[in-house]
Nucleic acid binder design. Structure first.
Lengths: 242, 242
DNA sequence: CGATAGTTTGATCCGCGTCAATTCCAGTGG
DNA sequence: CCACTGGAATTGACGCGGATCAAACTATCG
């Protein structure tokens, strides 16, 4: 059985007065946005800020689900494995995203940092106790779950019915939408080609080929291996829509 | 723009004293299970029981999301379309399941009855007002959303990384698990081959072939076209796990 | 019975996977 | 600054799983 390789203690920075939530850069994005100062202070006591180096896991599929996370920086990759090692990436989490709440006693997926990340790490028990007295926070999280569910359904459609090039176009637009709404002059691809392939249900050779095809068609321009520019967003959107 | 072909009025049976929720056969399965009689009575006033004939839609993708449903009988198929008509079935809902809550103003998928169904139909606005005073009901629904999300992630893995035969095995086991926990001497397949294919991201010919292959391998027996028997559940489970 | 839609089976095709060979690039040390 | 190195990405050749096309079979309902 897997155990998390992220033992929090040494990388925890206590959430003390020296680092209070009201300085948090992503508070307006995250579930905490609706809390008043008193509740925020009590929530803070349920957890601590954790630095997660690139490549390290927050938790593995099958780990006891005793912690939940609020991502404050970096990128987290969510994935599931089949017994023979085939991997499916089920999503990416960015600053402001909430993650790890489970109905089961064990996490249903693995969460790993693909870029150096930070996350507020809460004890599940203490968080749930806190939640019991905060109906509007529960409502917040419920809304986020519904949003995640809609995103998962979109991924289902993509995996089940779209071609390789349509998948890649959908992926690039999804990233562009989530990387701040700004005109994405440069779109960063923090994940490896393997991660992209495992998200799209393809092999890395196919991702590479389709990316080249988009480049040749003039829809995108590759700036570096992990950075590109969308040149023709309408055409990309038309491709993504099927 | 699509409009629902299910105009409720003529098929609504008012939820009056003559048909109170305490006679409801699926109450123990559904979100209402935690409500006391008084709250149940008030919830009842938010909606009505609707009979949905086979083939009729509860709502279409793109319809204003002003109604939500609690399925009490039958089977509901959820699906999404691409612009050129490719269809992906994103799930099936059975008695006791809750359905249609949306974060957006419009439904993100189509919900249609594949077998004659009944559902409690609530006005979204009135239901949300009621919900505001019922934190433990909100919690119920939140938990259901989390469960739906886990199921959607399983479907993502299936679509992205499993072979045709593994997909079919997973599907049959999922149905067996949901068709009451009883020893499934006879497993009913209420949906058409097309529905199964659109759920699994395959074509109906492939579904038919793989079903024949499972039959030849002695894992299942086809009783009728819409009923089968699982003969070797462990082998089927091993196949489904990849 | 016949009509019609749904399902099964067969033959062939093609998109993406597999295998293999470069090429690119970040990091390291001279 | 360049040379080296190992992992990641790209590109090419070929094969296979599932799609497509076509035909026969079966269930349901008048």
């Amino acid at each position: 059985m897997y155990m998390s390789d992220f033992s929090g203690a040494e990388s925890l920075l206590a959430l003390e007065e020296s680092h209070p939530c009201h300085d948090c850069a992503v508070r307006h994005l995250s579930m905490c946005s609706g809390l008043d100062p008193g509740d925020l202070r009590r929530l803070r006591l349920c957890g601590a800020l954790a630095a997660v180096p690139a490549g390290k896991a927050l938790f593995f599929e099958g780990d006891p689900a005793d912690c939940i996370f609020n991502v404050t920086a970096g990128v987290i990759r969510l994935s599931k494995l089949l017994s023979d090692g085939r991997r499916q990436v089920t999503g990416f989490k960015f600053a402001g995203d909430f993650l790890g709440i489970a109905e089961e006693a064990e996490h249903g997926f693995t969460a790993e940092a693909i870029a150096p990340a930070e996350a507020c790490r809460f004890s599940r028990g203490r968080f749930e106790d806190f939640l019991a007295g905060q109906p509007q926070l529960e409502r917040q999280l419920h809304l986020r779950a519904i949003k995640d569910l809609a995103a998962a359904r979109d991924q289902v459609v993509m995996l089940g019915r779209k071609t390789a090039s349509e998948k890649l176009a959908s992926f690039l637009l999804m990233l562009a939408d989530r990387s701040g709404g700004m005109p994405p002059h440069r779109l960063s691809l923090p994940m490896s080609r393997t991660d992209i392939a495992d998200y799209l249900g393809l092999r890395i050779e196919t991702v590479s080929r389709e990316l080249s095809a988009l480049k040749c068609a003039g829809l995108v321009r590759l700036l570096t291996q992990h950075e590109l520019q969308i040149l023709d967003r309408p055409a990309l959107a038309a491709l993504a829509a099927g």
